[in-house]
Design a protein around this nucleic acid. Structure first.
Length: 434
RNA sequence: GUGGCCUUAGCUCAAUCGGUAGAGCACUGGAUUGUGGCUCCAGAGGUCACGGGUUCGAACCCCGUAGGCCACCCCA
Protein backbone atom coordinates (compact mmCIF):
# COMPACT_ATOMS: atom_id res chain seq x y z
CA UNK A 1 0.00 0.00 0.00
CA UNK A 2 1.27 3.47 -0.82
CA UNK A 3 2.08 5.74 2.08
CA UNK A 4 -0.28 8.39 0.80
CA UNK A 5 -3.41 8.12 -1.25
CA UNK A 6 -6.01 10.52 -2.59
CA UNK A 7 -8.43 11.52 0.19
CA UNK A 8 -11.54 9.46 0.58
CA UNK A 9 -14.11 10.26 -2.07
CA UNK A 10 -11.60 12.03 -4.31
CA UNK A 11 -9.59 10.63 -7.15
CA UNK A 12 -6.83 11.56 -9.51
CA UNK A 13 -8.00 12.28 -13.02
CA UNK A 14 -5.39 10.37 -15.00
CA UNK A 15 -4.65 11.49 -18.57
CA UNK A 16 -7.40 9.44 -20.22
CA UNK A 17 -10.11 10.66 -17.86
CA UNK A 18 -8.75 14.19 -17.64
CA UNK A 19 -8.76 14.40 -21.43
CA UNK A 20 -12.36 13.27 -21.54
CA UNK A 21 -13.24 15.92 -18.96
CA UNK A 22 -11.37 18.63 -20.85
CA UNK A 23 -13.31 17.75 -23.97
CA UNK A 24 -16.61 18.11 -22.09
CA UNK A 25 -15.44 21.40 -20.61
CA UNK A 26 -14.55 22.70 -24.07
CA UNK A 27 -17.97 21.76 -25.45
CA UNK A 28 -19.63 23.33 -22.41
CA UNK A 29 -17.72 26.59 -22.70
CA UNK A 30 -18.40 26.87 -26.43
CA UNK A 31 -22.10 26.08 -25.99
CA UNK A 32 -22.54 28.53 -23.12
CA UNK A 33 -20.90 31.24 -25.18
CA UNK A 34 -23.14 30.50 -28.16
CA UNK A 35 -26.22 30.89 -25.95
CA UNK A 36 -24.97 34.14 -24.46
CA UNK A 37 -23.89 32.81 -21.07
CA UNK A 38 -20.70 34.51 -19.95
CA UNK A 39 -18.02 32.71 -17.99
CA UNK A 40 -17.70 33.22 -14.26
CA UNK A 41 -15.81 31.54 -11.43
CA UNK A 42 -16.43 32.03 -7.74
CA UNK A 43 -14.30 30.88 -4.78
CA UNK A 44 -14.31 27.17 -4.03
CA UNK A 45 -15.33 28.13 -0.49
CA UNK A 46 -17.72 30.66 0.95
CA UNK A 47 -18.92 31.73 4.33
CA UNK A 48 -20.97 28.82 5.60
CA UNK A 49 -23.92 31.16 5.98
CA UNK A 50 -24.11 31.62 2.19
CA UNK A 51 -25.00 27.96 1.85
CA UNK A 52 -27.05 27.67 5.03
CA UNK A 53 -29.21 30.59 4.05
CA UNK A 54 -29.23 30.00 0.31
CA UNK A 55 -29.65 26.27 0.08
CA UNK A 56 -31.55 25.91 3.34
CA UNK A 57 -30.13 24.64 6.62
CA UNK A 58 -32.65 21.82 6.88
CA UNK A 59 -31.59 20.26 3.58
CA UNK A 60 -29.41 17.17 3.37
CA UNK A 61 -26.78 19.12 1.49
CA UNK A 62 -26.24 21.54 4.35
CA UNK A 63 -27.22 19.33 7.23
CA UNK A 64 -24.96 16.37 6.54
CA UNK A 65 -23.02 16.91 3.32
CA UNK A 66 -21.41 20.29 3.85
CA UNK A 67 -17.61 20.13 3.70
CA UNK A 68 -16.80 22.49 6.55
CA UNK A 69 -13.34 23.97 6.90
CA UNK A 70 -11.76 24.08 10.32
CA UNK A 71 -11.99 27.67 11.57
CA UNK A 72 -8.84 29.62 12.26
CA UNK A 73 -8.55 31.60 15.43
CA UNK A 74 -7.23 34.73 13.72
CA UNK A 75 -10.29 35.11 11.54
CA UNK A 76 -13.64 34.53 13.09
CA UNK A 77 -15.52 33.30 10.03
CA UNK A 78 -16.80 29.82 9.33
CA UNK A 79 -16.16 28.56 5.81
CA UNK A 80 -17.30 25.59 3.78
CA UNK A 81 -16.40 24.21 0.37
CA UNK A 82 -19.14 24.86 -2.16
CA UNK A 83 -21.57 21.91 -2.53
CA UNK A 84 -23.21 23.51 -5.57
CA UNK A 85 -22.53 26.65 -7.57
CA UNK A 86 -25.78 28.58 -7.49
CA UNK A 87 -25.52 30.12 -4.02
CA UNK A 88 -22.03 31.45 -4.73
CA UNK A 89 -22.99 32.84 -8.11
CA UNK A 90 -26.03 34.59 -6.68
CA UNK A 91 -23.84 35.97 -3.88
CA UNK A 92 -21.54 37.38 -6.57
CA UNK A 93 -24.52 38.79 -8.47
CA UNK A 94 -25.57 40.71 -5.39
CA UNK A 95 -22.06 41.73 -4.33
CA UNK A 96 -21.19 43.18 -7.74
CA UNK A 97 -24.48 44.93 -8.31
CA UNK A 98 -25.34 42.91 -11.39
CA UNK A 99 -28.95 44.04 -11.10
CA UNK A 100 -27.74 47.18 -12.91
CA UNK A 101 -26.78 45.10 -15.97
CA UNK A 102 -29.31 44.29 -18.67
CA UNK A 103 -31.48 41.47 -17.32
CA UNK A 104 -31.32 38.57 -17.32
CA UNK A 105 -27.68 38.16 -16.40
CA UNK A 106 -26.61 34.88 -17.95
CA UNK A 107 -23.61 33.17 -16.40
CA UNK A 108 -21.79 29.85 -16.86
CA UNK A 109 -19.45 28.11 -14.43
CA UNK A 110 -17.38 24.96 -14.87
CA UNK A 111 -15.60 23.62 -11.84
CA UNK A 112 -15.38 21.25 -8.88
CA UNK A 113 -18.00 20.93 -6.15
CA UNK A 114 -17.61 19.25 -2.77
CA UNK A 115 -19.97 17.20 -0.66
CA UNK A 116 -19.09 15.25 2.44
CA UNK A 117 -21.01 12.17 1.32
CA UNK A 118 -20.27 8.54 1.73
CA UNK A 119 -18.55 7.74 -1.56
CA UNK A 120 -19.97 5.31 -4.06
CA UNK A 121 -19.50 4.66 -7.74
CA UNK A 122 -20.51 7.87 -9.51
CA UNK A 123 -20.67 9.75 -6.24
CA UNK A 124 -17.60 11.57 -5.03
CA UNK A 125 -16.70 14.12 -2.42
CA UNK A 126 -15.16 16.18 -5.20
CA UNK A 127 -16.99 16.24 -8.51
CA UNK A 128 -17.25 18.54 -11.50
CA UNK A 129 -20.21 20.47 -12.81
CA UNK A 130 -21.12 22.51 -15.81
CA UNK A 131 -23.50 25.08 -14.43
CA UNK A 132 -25.55 27.78 -16.07
CA UNK A 133 -27.65 30.51 -14.44
CA UNK A 134 -30.05 33.08 -15.90
CA UNK A 135 -30.82 35.67 -13.24
CA UNK A 136 -33.47 38.32 -13.65
CA UNK A 137 -36.10 36.86 -15.97
CA UNK A 138 -39.36 35.46 -14.54
CA UNK A 139 -40.85 34.10 -17.75
CA UNK A 140 -41.16 30.47 -18.80
CA UNK A 141 -39.25 31.10 -22.02
CA UNK A 142 -35.91 31.23 -20.17
CA UNK A 143 -36.81 27.99 -18.43
CA UNK A 144 -37.30 26.41 -21.82
CA UNK A 145 -34.06 27.84 -23.19
CA UNK A 146 -32.12 26.50 -20.22
CA UNK A 147 -33.56 23.02 -20.59
CA UNK A 148 -32.93 23.11 -24.32
CA UNK A 149 -29.32 24.11 -23.66
CA UNK A 150 -28.86 21.19 -21.28
CA UNK A 151 -30.43 18.82 -23.76
CA UNK A 152 -28.19 20.06 -26.53
CA UNK A 153 -25.10 19.66 -24.39
CA UNK A 154 -25.82 15.97 -23.84
CA UNK A 155 -26.36 15.41 -27.53
CA UNK A 156 -23.26 17.31 -28.66
CA UNK A 157 -21.16 15.40 -26.20
CA UNK A 158 -22.57 12.08 -27.36
CA UNK A 159 -24.91 10.89 -24.60
CA UNK A 160 -27.46 8.58 -26.19
CA UNK A 161 -31.07 9.48 -25.42
CA UNK A 162 -30.89 11.71 -22.36
CA UNK A 163 -34.26 11.71 -20.62
CA UNK A 164 -35.56 14.94 -19.13
CA UNK A 165 -37.90 14.62 -16.15
CA UNK A 166 -40.01 17.71 -15.55
CA UNK A 167 -42.25 18.96 -12.78
CA UNK A 168 -43.59 22.12 -11.22
CA UNK A 169 -43.39 22.28 -7.45
CA UNK A 170 -45.46 25.42 -6.94
CA UNK A 171 -44.50 28.55 -5.09
CA UNK A 172 -45.13 30.16 -1.66
CA UNK A 173 -48.68 30.94 -2.74
CA UNK A 174 -49.85 27.41 -3.50
CA UNK A 175 -47.27 25.00 -2.09
CA UNK A 176 -48.09 25.35 1.64
CA UNK A 177 -51.70 24.25 1.14
CA UNK A 178 -50.55 21.33 -0.95
CA UNK A 179 -47.95 20.28 1.60
CA UNK A 180 -50.60 20.35 4.30
CA UNK A 181 -52.85 18.12 2.23
CA UNK A 182 -49.95 15.81 1.43
CA UNK A 183 -48.99 15.50 5.09
CA UNK A 184 -52.58 14.70 5.98
CA UNK A 185 -52.58 11.98 3.33
CA UNK A 186 -49.47 10.37 4.77
CA UNK A 187 -50.73 10.63 8.34
CA UNK A 188 -53.84 8.79 7.30
CA UNK A 189 -51.57 5.97 6.16
CA UNK A 190 -49.03 6.31 8.95
CA UNK A 191 -49.20 2.59 9.66
CA UNK A 192 -47.73 1.88 6.23
CA UNK A 193 -44.81 4.29 6.58
CA UNK A 194 -41.34 2.92 7.28
CA UNK A 195 -39.83 4.40 10.47
CA UNK A 196 -37.43 6.64 8.57
CA UNK A 197 -40.21 8.10 6.47
CA UNK A 198 -42.27 8.77 9.57
CA UNK A 199 -39.55 11.14 10.82
CA UNK A 200 -39.25 12.88 7.47
CA UNK A 201 -43.01 13.40 7.41
CA UNK A 202 -42.68 15.93 10.22
CA UNK A 203 -39.73 17.79 8.70
CA UNK A 204 -40.38 17.79 4.98
CA UNK A 205 -43.40 15.86 3.65
CA UNK A 206 -42.46 16.67 0.05
CA UNK A 207 -39.44 14.46 0.34
CA UNK A 208 -41.59 11.36 0.84
CA UNK A 209 -42.74 11.71 -2.73
CA UNK A 210 -39.54 10.51 -4.38
CA UNK A 211 -38.76 7.73 -1.92
CA UNK A 212 -37.64 4.49 -3.51
CA UNK A 213 -38.91 2.30 -0.69
CA UNK A 214 -41.24 -0.27 -2.29
CA UNK A 215 -43.98 0.43 0.26
CA UNK A 216 -43.73 4.12 -0.51
CA UNK A 217 -43.74 3.70 -4.25
CA UNK A 218 -47.05 1.90 -3.93
CA UNK A 219 -48.48 4.45 -1.52
CA UNK A 220 -47.30 7.39 -3.62
CA UNK A 221 -49.29 6.17 -6.58
CA UNK A 222 -52.41 7.45 -4.82
CA UNK A 223 -50.88 10.53 -3.18
CA UNK A 224 -52.14 14.01 -4.08
CA UNK A 225 -50.44 15.38 -7.17
CA UNK A 226 -48.85 18.83 -6.91
CA UNK A 227 -49.52 19.88 -10.47
CA UNK A 228 -53.23 19.57 -9.72
CA UNK A 229 -52.86 22.02 -6.84
CA UNK A 230 -50.95 24.83 -8.52
CA UNK A 231 -52.17 28.42 -8.19
CA UNK A 232 -53.13 30.20 -11.39
CA UNK A 233 -49.76 31.90 -11.78
CA UNK A 234 -47.79 28.66 -11.34
CA UNK A 235 -50.13 26.73 -13.61
CA UNK A 236 -49.78 29.37 -16.31
CA UNK A 237 -45.99 29.33 -15.96
CA UNK A 238 -45.88 25.54 -16.24
CA UNK A 239 -48.16 25.55 -19.26
CA UNK A 240 -46.03 28.22 -20.88
CA UNK A 241 -42.87 26.24 -20.28
CA UNK A 242 -44.34 23.09 -21.78
CA UNK A 243 -45.60 24.99 -24.81
CA UNK A 244 -42.13 26.42 -25.39
CA UNK A 245 -40.49 23.02 -25.00
CA UNK A 246 -42.93 21.52 -27.46
CA UNK A 247 -42.23 24.32 -29.90
CA UNK A 248 -38.51 23.65 -29.56
CA UNK A 249 -39.05 19.92 -30.09
CA UNK A 250 -37.59 19.01 -26.70
CA UNK A 251 -38.89 15.71 -25.38
CA UNK A 252 -39.50 15.38 -21.67
CA UNK A 253 -41.42 13.19 -19.27
CA UNK A 254 -43.71 14.70 -16.64
CA UNK A 255 -42.97 13.34 -13.18
CA UNK A 256 -45.22 14.66 -10.45
CA UNK A 257 -43.06 12.96 -7.82
CA UNK A 258 -39.93 14.89 -8.79
CA UNK A 259 -38.94 17.24 -5.97
CA UNK A 260 -35.55 18.75 -5.43
CA UNK A 261 -33.34 18.69 -2.39
CA UNK A 262 -32.75 22.42 -2.17
CA UNK A 263 -35.12 24.79 -0.42
CA UNK A 264 -34.80 27.57 -2.94
CA UNK A 265 -36.50 25.84 -5.85
CA UNK A 266 -39.81 27.19 -7.06
CA UNK A 267 -42.07 26.16 -9.90
CA UNK A 268 -39.83 24.56 -12.52
CA UNK A 269 -37.82 21.51 -11.40
CA UNK A 270 -36.10 19.07 -13.71
CA UNK A 271 -33.58 16.25 -13.69
CA UNK A 272 -31.86 14.38 -16.48
CA UNK A 273 -31.11 10.66 -16.57
CA UNK A 274 -29.31 8.53 -19.12
CA UNK A 275 -31.20 5.80 -20.93
CA UNK A 276 -31.05 2.56 -18.99
CA UNK A 277 -30.46 4.43 -15.76
CA UNK A 278 -29.42 1.66 -13.43
CA UNK A 279 -28.25 2.92 -10.02
CA UNK A 280 -30.06 5.43 -7.90
CA UNK A 281 -27.25 8.00 -8.08
CA UNK A 282 -27.44 8.09 -11.82
CA UNK A 283 -28.81 11.58 -12.43
CA UNK A 284 -26.52 13.39 -14.82
CA UNK A 285 -28.04 16.81 -14.40
CA UNK A 286 -30.73 18.83 -12.74
CA UNK A 287 -31.95 22.31 -12.12
CA UNK A 288 -34.84 24.58 -11.44
CA UNK A 289 -36.17 28.03 -10.74
CA UNK A 290 -35.20 29.95 -7.60
CA UNK A 291 -37.10 33.22 -7.58
CA UNK A 292 -36.52 33.88 -3.88
CA UNK A 293 -32.82 33.21 -3.66
CA UNK A 294 -31.36 36.58 -4.59
CA UNK A 295 -33.45 38.22 -1.88
CA UNK A 296 -32.41 35.56 0.65
CA UNK A 297 -28.79 36.46 0.02
CA UNK A 298 -29.32 40.17 0.50
CA UNK A 299 -30.38 41.41 -2.94
CA UNK A 300 -33.60 42.82 -4.26
CA UNK A 301 -36.39 40.36 -5.17
CA UNK A 302 -35.09 38.82 -8.41
CA UNK A 303 -36.16 35.70 -10.30
CA UNK A 304 -33.63 33.14 -11.52
CA UNK A 305 -33.23 29.70 -13.02
CA UNK A 306 -30.29 27.42 -13.68
CA UNK A 307 -28.98 23.90 -14.01
CA UNK A 308 -25.96 21.87 -13.02
CA UNK A 309 -24.69 18.96 -15.09
CA UNK A 310 -22.43 16.31 -13.57
CA UNK A 311 -19.39 16.05 -15.80
CA UNK A 312 -17.87 12.99 -14.08
CA UNK A 313 -21.12 11.12 -14.36
CA UNK A 314 -21.41 12.04 -18.01
CA UNK A 315 -17.93 10.63 -18.62
CA UNK A 316 -19.07 7.44 -16.90
CA UNK A 317 -22.18 7.24 -19.04
CA UNK A 318 -20.19 7.78 -22.23
CA UNK A 319 -17.80 4.99 -21.26
CA UNK A 320 -20.69 2.69 -20.37
CA UNK A 321 -22.35 3.45 -23.69
CA UNK A 322 -19.12 2.69 -25.50
CA UNK A 323 -18.98 6.19 -26.94
CA UNK A 324 -15.60 7.71 -27.74
CA UNK A 325 -14.56 9.98 -24.90
CA UNK A 326 -11.39 11.70 -26.15
CA UNK A 327 -8.46 11.11 -28.46
CA UNK A 328 -5.09 10.34 -26.91
CA UNK A 329 -3.56 13.81 -26.52
CA UNK A 330 -0.05 12.44 -26.06
CA UNK A 331 0.32 10.73 -29.44
CA UNK A 332 3.15 12.55 -31.18
CA UNK A 333 3.25 13.15 -34.88
CA UNK A 334 6.96 12.55 -34.97
CA UNK A 335 9.63 11.11 -32.70
CA UNK A 336 13.21 12.07 -33.27
CA UNK A 337 15.53 9.11 -32.77
CA UNK A 338 19.18 8.34 -33.30
CA UNK A 339 21.78 5.77 -32.37
CA UNK A 340 24.56 8.09 -31.32
CA UNK A 341 24.23 8.69 -27.58
CA UNK A 342 26.47 11.73 -27.88
CA UNK A 343 24.14 13.47 -30.32
CA UNK A 344 21.22 14.18 -27.99
CA UNK A 345 21.65 17.90 -28.56
CA UNK A 346 21.19 17.37 -32.31
CA UNK A 347 18.01 15.37 -31.74
CA UNK A 348 16.65 18.01 -29.39
CA UNK A 349 17.36 20.64 -32.02
CA UNK A 350 15.49 18.71 -34.71
CA UNK A 351 12.52 18.22 -32.39
CA UNK A 352 12.54 21.93 -31.66
CA UNK A 353 12.35 22.70 -35.37
CA UNK A 354 9.27 20.49 -35.70
CA UNK A 355 7.60 21.99 -32.64
CA UNK A 356 8.31 25.45 -33.94
CA UNK A 357 6.35 24.48 -37.03
CA UNK A 358 3.37 23.53 -34.84
CA UNK A 359 3.93 19.78 -34.91
CA UNK A 360 3.72 17.50 -31.89
CA UNK A 361 7.23 16.12 -31.71
CA UNK A 362 9.11 14.15 -29.10
CA UNK A 363 12.80 13.46 -28.90
CA UNK A 364 14.40 10.28 -27.63
CA UNK A 365 16.92 11.36 -25.05
CA UNK A 366 17.83 8.10 -23.36
CA UNK A 367 20.98 6.47 -24.75
CA UNK A 368 19.40 3.25 -25.89
CA UNK A 369 19.72 1.36 -29.09
CA UNK A 370 17.87 2.47 -32.18
CA UNK A 371 15.64 -0.59 -32.23
CA UNK A 372 14.30 0.19 -28.76
CA UNK A 373 13.73 3.79 -29.71
CA UNK A 374 11.71 2.84 -32.77
CA UNK A 375 9.81 0.27 -30.76
CA UNK A 376 8.83 2.92 -28.24
CA UNK A 377 7.85 5.33 -31.02
CA UNK A 378 5.66 2.68 -32.62
CA UNK A 379 3.92 1.83 -29.40
CA UNK A 380 3.33 5.53 -28.85
CA UNK A 381 1.42 5.54 -32.15
CA UNK A 382 3.73 8.13 -33.63
CA UNK A 383 3.19 8.67 -37.33
CA UNK A 384 6.84 9.37 -38.15
CA UNK A 385 10.30 8.69 -36.84
CA UNK A 386 13.00 11.16 -37.74
CA UNK A 387 16.31 9.31 -37.68
CA UNK A 388 19.24 11.60 -36.98
CA UNK A 389 22.58 10.10 -37.92
CA UNK A 390 25.69 10.60 -40.03
CA UNK A 391 23.70 12.21 -42.87
CA UNK A 392 23.23 15.24 -40.64
CA UNK A 393 26.68 16.30 -41.85
CA UNK A 394 25.07 16.79 -45.28
CA UNK A 395 22.08 18.55 -43.74
CA UNK A 396 19.87 15.48 -44.11
CA UNK A 397 17.86 13.14 -41.87
CA UNK A 398 15.93 9.95 -42.55
CA UNK A 399 12.14 10.42 -42.39
CA UNK A 400 10.49 7.10 -41.67
CA UNK A 401 6.71 6.66 -41.97
CA UNK A 402 5.97 4.24 -39.15
CA UNK A 403 2.48 3.48 -40.39
CA UNK A 404 3.47 2.81 -44.00
CA UNK A 405 6.90 1.36 -43.27
CA UNK A 406 8.54 3.58 -45.87
CA UNK A 407 11.59 5.77 -45.45
CA UNK A 408 13.45 8.44 -47.34
CA UNK A 409 16.18 11.02 -46.89
CA UNK A 410 14.93 14.58 -46.35
CA UNK A 411 16.87 17.82 -46.11
CA UNK A 412 16.63 19.30 -42.65
CA UNK A 413 15.39 22.55 -44.17
CA UNK A 414 12.43 20.75 -45.75
CA UNK A 415 11.68 18.43 -42.80
CA UNK A 416 8.88 20.34 -41.07
CA UNK A 417 7.09 21.10 -44.32
CA UNK A 418 7.41 17.49 -45.47
CA UNK A 419 6.17 16.02 -42.17
CA UNK A 420 3.22 18.42 -42.04
CA UNK A 421 2.25 17.63 -45.62
CA UNK A 422 2.50 13.85 -45.24
CA UNK A 423 0.73 13.88 -41.90
CA UNK A 424 -2.12 16.02 -43.22
CA UNK A 425 -2.73 13.74 -46.17
CA UNK A 426 -3.04 10.72 -43.89
CA UNK A 427 -4.97 12.30 -41.05
CA UNK A 428 -7.55 14.63 -42.51
CA UNK A 429 -8.63 17.37 -40.21
CA UNK A 430 -6.06 16.71 -37.52
CA UNK A 431 -3.14 18.39 -39.20
CA UNK A 432 -1.68 21.36 -37.40
CA UNK A 433 -1.09 24.51 -39.36
CA UNK A 434 2.52 24.73 -40.52
C1' G B 1 -25.44 8.83 8.66
C1' U B 2 -27.49 3.07 8.46
C1' G B 3 -26.75 -2.02 6.56
C1' G B 4 -24.17 -5.82 3.52
C1' C B 5 -19.94 -7.66 0.51
C1' C B 6 -14.80 -7.00 -0.38
C1' U B 7 -9.01 -5.67 0.01
C1' U B 8 -2.54 -10.55 -2.34
C1' A B 9 2.92 -7.01 -7.57
C1' G B 10 1.36 -0.85 -11.32
C1' C B 11 -3.40 -3.75 -13.48
C1' U B 12 -6.48 -8.51 -13.60
C1' C B 13 -6.21 -12.60 -10.49
C1' A B 14 -4.06 -17.66 -8.27
C1' A B 15 -2.02 -20.02 -3.74
C1' U B 16 -5.43 -27.42 -1.68
C1' C B 17 -6.39 -28.98 5.19
C1' G B 18 -3.14 -23.04 8.66
C1' G B 19 3.25 -24.89 6.79
C1' U B 20 6.35 -17.72 5.98
C1' A B 21 3.64 -16.05 -2.26
C1' G B 22 2.83 -17.27 -8.07
C1' A B 23 0.88 -16.32 -13.24
C1' G B 24 -0.73 -13.16 -17.28
C1' C B 25 -0.52 -8.12 -18.84
C1' A B 26 2.43 -3.74 -18.21
C1' C B 27 7.70 -1.98 -17.21
C1' U B 28 13.39 -2.41 -18.06
C1' G B 29 17.28 -5.00 -20.57
C1' G B 30 19.16 -8.82 -24.13
C1' A B 31 18.69 -12.00 -28.89
C1' U B 32 26.77 -10.50 -33.30
C1' U B 33 27.21 -2.95 -31.73
C1' G B 34 21.77 2.39 -37.64
C1' U B 35 15.66 0.22 -38.20
C1' G B 36 9.61 -0.55 -35.01
C1' G B 37 4.32 -2.82 -32.49
C1' C B 38 5.11 -9.85 -33.22
C1' U B 39 8.29 -13.83 -30.99
C1' C B 40 11.98 -15.85 -27.48
C1' C B 41 15.10 -15.09 -23.00
C1' A B 42 16.16 -12.47 -18.56
C1' G B 43 15.47 -8.79 -14.74
C1' A B 44 13.07 -5.68 -11.48
C1' G B 45 8.66 -5.29 -8.77
C1' G B 46 5.23 -7.79 -2.23
C1' U B 47 5.23 -5.24 5.53
C1' C B 48 -0.42 -10.62 1.50
C1' A B 49 -4.52 -2.81 3.24
C1' C B 50 -3.03 -1.41 8.50
C1' G B 51 -2.94 -2.70 13.89
C1' G B 52 -3.70 -6.37 17.51
C1' G B 53 -5.08 -11.56 18.97
C1' U B 54 -5.12 -17.24 18.60
C1' U B 55 -1.25 -20.90 17.11
C1' C B 56 4.97 -24.39 17.19
C1' G B 57 3.63 -21.81 12.61
C1' A B 58 -1.31 -17.06 9.71
C1' A B 59 -2.36 -14.37 2.97
C1' C B 60 -5.81 -18.14 5.24
C1' C B 61 -9.00 -18.22 11.87
C1' C B 62 -10.84 -13.95 15.53
C1' C B 63 -11.28 -8.49 16.84
C1' G B 64 -10.52 -3.39 15.53
C1' U B 65 -9.24 0.55 11.96
C1' A B 66 -8.76 2.46 7.02
C1' G B 67 -10.11 2.14 2.01
C1' G B 68 -13.22 0.23 -2.16
C1' C B 69 -17.95 -1.55 -3.96
C1' C B 70 -23.45 -2.24 -3.42
C1' A B 71 -28.17 -0.85 -1.25
C1' C B 72 -30.71 2.98 1.74
C1' C B 73 -30.70 8.39 2.58
C1' C B 74 -29.89 12.03 -1.18
C1' C B 75 -28.20 13.97 -5.27
C1' A B 76 -24.41 15.38 -9.74
Amino acid sequence: MPTFRAPRGTRDLLPAERSAMLRLEAVAAALASRYGYRPIETPLFEQTAVFERGIGDATDIVEKELFRLAPRTDEGEAWALRPEPTAGIVRAYVQHGMQTLPQPVKLALIGPMFRYDRPQAGRYREFWQFDVEAIGDPGPAVDAEIIELADRFYREVGVADPEVLLNSIGDPVCRPAYVTELAAFYRAHADRLPPLERQRLERNPLRLLDSKEPAMVELNASAPVITEHLCDACAAHFEGLRAHLDALGIRYRLDSRLVRGLDYYIRTAFEVYPRDAAGQQSAIGGGGRYDGLVELLGGRPTPGIGFGLGLDRIVRVLEAQGAPTAPDPAAPVAVVVGADPAATAERLRVATILRGAGLAARSELAPRKLGKQLEAASRDHAHFAVIVGDELGNGQVQLRDLEAGTQKAVALDDLAREVARAHASHHHGTAPSP
